[in-house]
Design a protein around this nucleic acid. Structure first.
Ligand SMILES: [Zn+2]
Ligand SMILES: [Zn+2]
Ligand SMILES: [Zn+2]
Ligand SMILES: [Zn+2]
Lengths: 129, 129
DNA sequence: AGGAAGAGTGAGAACCGTTGTCAAATCGTG
DNA sequence: CACGATTTGACAACGGTTCTCACTCTTCCT
């Protein structure tokens, strides 16, 4: 049985902010956004809270190509992302065909305990000239 | 016109080592492997050389889930990887259907300049009880 | 309500992969 | 060889993340 986390001002602030965002953001961006809302939360706490939310499957985490971990409030269940490289706007996508293909390829090569990562990046309409 | 790189002992050592490996390795692992071959190469040089090889498309680079960049000598052309989580053994895989699916999904959502990442992880036959 | 127990917080230090610096070494050309 | 340009490598710096630990706050018990 896992202990329920305590209901602190900081956790509420982070969770509420995540509800309001619609793209992937780094921990540091989230920390800055909280300050601009006059909801100061220590950077360590932001990191810890985001990790906890990710572990609890309440946010998705993904690594940007320059090494930062980005977080976003997402719907539950397995899905992938179409992410705008400029503004971070994100569309959740599903690809049952891809899921099956990945599992089949892995099995054919004698691999077990299969998982996969798949992200699509591009420039969204409003970020184009 | 791009300048041809010089043929130095260090670049030769790294390139030769990469030929002999068949899984993804970090720059630091490669640096250590070179030492164990009595082919000492400075760590900075290992990093620079691997990046150059990756830019020249002679090795593939991929980010491990703990943030390290891993390198592997691969065949040319766009492909993806089926990687053993335990031993790093890697199978190159192609999925034309997936490529098309990703491009279509992105276009349908008004995204341009599309790229994607896709890796499959599992445990290979020889790493299982 | 009052208070004890212990989870949570945050300023700062530590960590770690990676990149930058720059004087010295090396390569290739003439 | 001799020269100029490239490359190297010890070391410092960087940036995101994690750790530390004294202090605070939530929770729960009486
Ligand atoms: Zn998601
Ligand atoms: Zn999937
Ligand atoms: Zn490859
Ligand atoms: Zn592809």
């Amino acid at each position: 049985m896992v202990e329920a986390p305590r209901n602190t001002r900081q956790r509420r602030a982070v969770a509420e902010l995540m509800e309001d965002l619609d793209g992937f953001r780094s921990a540091q961006q989230i920390h800055a956004l909280l300050e601009s809302r006059d909801q100061n939360v220590g950077l360590s706490t932001v990191y810890r809270t985001l990790q906890a939310l990710a572990d609890a499957d309440e946010v998705d985490a993904l690594r940007s190509d320059d090494g930062e971990t980005l977080y976003r409030r997402c719907s539950r269940g397995h899905h992938h992302h179409l992410v705008c490289r400029d503004c971070g706007r994100t569309v959740e996508v599903e690809g049952p065909t891809v899921e099956r293909w990945a599992d089949r390829v892995a099995e054919e090569n004698g691999f077990a305990d299969i998982s996969h990562t798949l992200e699509i990046f591009g420039t969204c309409a409003s970020c184009r000239p």
